[in-house]
Design a protein around this nucleic acid. Structure first.
Length: 863
RNA sequence: GCGAGAGUGGCGGAACUGGUAGACGCACUGGACUUAGGAUCCAGCUCUGGCAACAGAAUGGGAGUUCAACUCUCCCCUCUCGCACCA
């Protein structure tokens, strides 16, 4: 053992050992209980950032812990390797996305290995490899065959900057989730996965995921957005046509005084044709179509509409209703048509007042009256039905169901539900993705590629085009195809590629048998390993990736490929890694290394100006508040970096970067090291004390008990809630206690207990700082890896306190405290409390009303 | 607007089902060791008053339940995140 703790030497030594001995290689073993631990795989951007380090450290601790608990742990790593950054970088550097991607993978794998993660590297996958995506194409064909996929020309979210379509889930407040630029609507042919077929099931199972954070569940529920209501058909005047409307308030149908259609609604232009309104309507529709999604989504957006010149009839009240087209009606929700009930919907109310439309009250409050002429806002509460024919006098909540049934009886409408969730558009007009295995034939139409022709390889030597447009359509040798159905040589391949979220929707199954070449995965291995027991990643995927994955699992389940419906039993969403932003009046945001000085006296290295400290925000390149993990690894080593990530905050909370925090972690490891150095000669050959604490006394006894208490606490903190910060605190406390005993030769009791304490510290630390622990374990004389030792167990008897601390309150305020023996009964404690001098002073001869004794803990005297 | 989460010392954070508020760490202060220490070890460290003993106040604010509230209930304020004209 060296006197000095030298992380560099230690870490490379043990990393080398794990690698060469393939220490973390696993295979199915029916005799052992499995544990599948998965962290969200990274996009190979080229560099590991602190977010990765945190995510993977949390996962690694759990993986190593479970391994020590005897589980057969699957802990894989791979690369979410398709996607636009590769393509953009390739265009910028006149390189190729594949080259860029694979080089980045090399770099990042190297960095991950330097942090000492316990991955089974033999299972590494990259989603851009044909061995991977060919099975995705295979599944596409199966899904197509079963009608789970369709092609449609429709309005879609188009990001002009990325030159591609985005799924609804990928649009955030009208902006592209990737580049933040405005998203517009564009009409295009697109492939869709019918995720909406599973809306009900995805929603229902939200309540069967007890291991998921409440927050994520709620987000998913909201995203699926189920509304229960009715569809009602309104006949158009002077035609046989009817306009179907979705409503959740069928109880107010008698109050519907006008109708609003989405500007994109196919009836809008038809209805206005030949009326005086025709020009106005066309103008309005064109005006709306020019607007982008974000400005239409703003709250303050002015509600506007135009009369189409046509009328429809309220099927219950018989009222003649003007048909409007209005900007707030959305084509993608419900049927694209809204029955407007101004008396009972605030938005309709404002619209009616603006355009002078009738307001008819059909629900009145229980204890009040409503006058449609004078009311200043819509009444949306519960009440009694009025002006509603046979339903008058009924409670409106009852009427909700009654009217729905009535509509059904009369053939005017039906009970129905509507979802916010849209089908998943997966076509991407980009190059660096998995080709869609479809051929378009002039004669036969859409023809799926025959299974034996898979994979459809992404051509490698494609010249990327300016602006990011896909080159696939211009590559004749790729695009030109012979129709598999009729043999026509005139057919064309589909040149769009799949959304990269398709790849990440089943990679966790692929890990179970990464080299399987007879299918997506080997069924027996998936049956053994799946579902994932613990999944860990950022909240940013709470909807996108997690919803798609849940959907995909249902598809695989439908085909009988997997036995389960939910892929992730437990989910942990870790917080972000944040740091203070710093800016200079001249140079804007500054990188940490562009600042000199510290405390209140910091200035810009470039110009010497005093810097302005900004908010603490998520580390990001644009804000320049980033810390490169490589620098930490270089300066402090992997173990300190890991320790810091775990100690500074519980995993689900945001973690604030602090250089001093890292120093603190480094100091702690040094402290443990020094302790070992001071004691090693005494404990090296000692037998760890394993007897009853009653054989011990004084500080040694205390240390022995403290060690057991620490084992208990650390185990509970890791097992129950992944609170590594408090687990580490507990170990620090134990080390502090150990420092209270000086090394003395020939005291076998001391050395035995200390040996036990030291072994425990090393074992407890081993998932957290694995290199450090391996080294000390070896120093203690063990010849095999610390991971092969089992997790320490605690002795129930050693957890019992020697004496109890009793707290005495008078009127709920702490007034005194004393120790008693464990076996002292409540009455004696009560007597002792009442006779306590300090307590007496506060009782001050006042009559005692009540004395509450909480067993072994507290006495409260009420006077 | 709707939904979720959070608010505790100078700072990061503890406090498990109501029972000693501030564990552990950082920063700071003092001491020891030392040629020196920005290393290490020991000690102090919520605020107010006091040399101290001690007393009082304190978990965003206000009420309530209780012998007892960071913890439970109600109202309000602030922050973060998600959805957002959803018919």
């Amino acid at each position: 053992m060296d006197e000095r703790y030298d992380p560099k030497t230690i870490e490379s030594r043990w990393q080398n050992f794990w690698e060469t001995s393939k220490f973390f290689k696993v295979k199915e073993d029916p005799d052992k209980e499995k544990y599948y631990l998965l962290e969200m795989f990274p996009y190979p951007s080229g560099n590991i950032h602190m977010g990765h380090v945190r995510n993977y450290t949390i996962g690694d601790v759990i993986a190593r812990y479970k391994k020590m608990r005897g589980f057969n742990v699957l802990h894989p790593m791979g690369w979410d390797a398709f996607g636009m950054p590769a393509e953009n970088a390739a265009i910028a550097n006149n390189s190729h996305p594949a080259k860029w991607t694979y080089e980045n993978i090399e770099k990042m794998r190297f960095q991950l290995k330097k942090i000492g993660f316990s991955y089974d590297w033999d299972r590494e996958i990259a989603t851009c490899s044909p061995e991977y995506y060919r099975w995705e194409q295979w599944l596409f064909l199966k899904m197509y065959e079963k009608g789970m996929i369709y092609r449609e020309k429709s309005f879609l979210n188009w990001c002009g900057h990325c030159q591609t379509v985005l799924a609804n889930e990928q649009v955030e407040a009208g902006l592209c989730w990737r580049c933040g630029k405005t998203v517009r609507q564009k009409k295009l042919w697109q492939w869709f996965f019918r995720i909406t077929d599973y809306a009900e099931d995805l929603l229902a199972y939200c309540d069967k995921l007890p291991g998921w954070p409440e927050k994520v569940i709620t987000m998913q529920k909201n995203w699926i957005g189920k509304s229960v209501g009715a569809e009602i058909r309104f006949p158009i005047e002077n035609t046989d046509e009817k306009i179907p409307v979705f409503t959740t308030r069928q109880d107010t149908v008698y109050g519907a005084t006008f109708m609003c259609l989405a500007p994109e609604h196919p009836l809008v232009l038809n209805l206005s044709k030949g009326t005086l309104q025709e020009d106005k309507v066309r103008e309005f529709v064109e005006h709306i179509s020019m607007q982008d999604r974000s400005s239409r989504a703003v709250e303050s957006y002015e509600k506007e509409g135009v009369f189409t010149g046509a009328y429809c009839l309220n099927p219950l009240s018989g009222l003649r209703m003007s048909i409007y087209t209005a900007n707030f009606a959305l084509m993608e929700y419900g049927t694209g048509a809204v029955m407007s009930v101004p008396a009972h919907d605030q938005r309709d109310f404002e619209f009616a007042r603006k355009y002078g439309l009738d307001v008819v009250v059909v629900v009145k409050p229980h204890d009040d009256d409503l006058d449609s002429a004078t009311m200043t806002q819509a009444f949306t509460g519960e009440g009694v039905m009025v002006n509603s024919g046979r339903f008058n006098g009924m409670d409106n909540v009852t009427a909700l169901d009654e009217i729905a049934s009535f509509l059904e009886q009369e053939g005017i409408g039906k009970k129905t539900t509507s979802f916010r969730l849209r089908d998943w558009g997966i076509s991407r007009q980009r190059y660096w993705g998995a080709p869609i295995p479809i051929i378009h034939c002039k004669k036969c139409g859409i023809v799926p590629v025959p299974e034996q022709d898979l994979p459809i390889l992404l051509p490698e030597n494609a010249d990327l085009l300016e602006g990011g447009r896909s080159p696939l359509g211009t590559l004749e040798y790729f695009a030109k195809a012979i129709c598999p159905a009729c043999g026509s040589p005139e057919a064309r391949r589909e040149t769009d590629t799949m959304d990269t979220f398709v790849e990440s929707s089943w990679y966790y199954e692929r890990y179970c048998s990464p080299n399987c070449d007879s299918g997506m995965f080997d069924k027996t291995s998936v049956d053994y390993w799946m579902p994932v027991d613990q999944y860990i990643g950022g909240v940013e995927h709470a909807i996108l990736h997690l919803l798609y994955s849940r959907y995909f699992t249902r598809v695989l389940n439908y085909f009988g490929l997997v036995k389960y419906k939910e892929p992730f039993t437990r989910l942990l969403t870790q917080g972000m890694v944040c740091k203070e932003t710093v800016s200079c009046p001249k140079h804007g945001f500054l990188l940490p290394e562009e600042v000199e000085g510290n405390g209140g006296d910091r200035h810009c290295k470039k110009c010497g100006e005093v810097i302005t400290p900004g908010r603490v925000e998520k580390m990001s390149k644009s804000k320049k508040n980033v810390i490169d993990p490589n620098i930490l690894l270089e300066k402090y080593g992997a173990d300190t970096t890991r320790l810091f990530c775990l100690f500074a905050a519980p995993p689900e909370r945001d973690l604030e970067w602090s250089e001093q925090g890292v120093e603190g972690g480094y100091r702690f490891l040094n402290r443990v090291w020094r302790f070992a150095w001071n004691w090693i000669d005494l404990i090296k050959d000692a037998t760890p004390f394993n007897g009853s604490p009653d054989l011990l006394e004084g500080r040694t006894r205390e240390l022995f008990k403290k060690t057991h208490a620490t084992i208990y606490k650390v185990t509970k903190d890791i097992e129950d809630r992944f609170h590594f910060n408090t687990a580490i605190s507990a170990i620090m406390e134990l080390v502090n206690t150990m420092y209270g005993i000086d090394p003395v030769k020939n005291d076998t009791q001391d050395t035995g207990v200390m040996r036990f304490a030291m072994e425990s510290v090393v074992l407890l630390l081993s998932p957290i700082v694995p290199h450090f622990a391996e080294e000390l374990w070896e120093t203690l004389g063990f010849e095999t890896s610390v991971l092969l030792a089992s997790w320490p167990s605690y002795m129930e008897g050693a957890l019992l306190k020697d004496e109890l601390l009793i707290v005495i309150q008078v009127n709920g305020k702490l007034r005194s405290r004393f120790h008693v023996d464990v076996d002292v009964d409540d009455n004696t404690i009560k007597e002792l409390a009442l006779s306590d001098k300090r307590v007496q002073k506060f009782i001050n001869n006042k009559p005692i009303k009540k004395v509450i004794v909480v067993k072994r803990k507290l006495v409260n005297i009420v006077v």
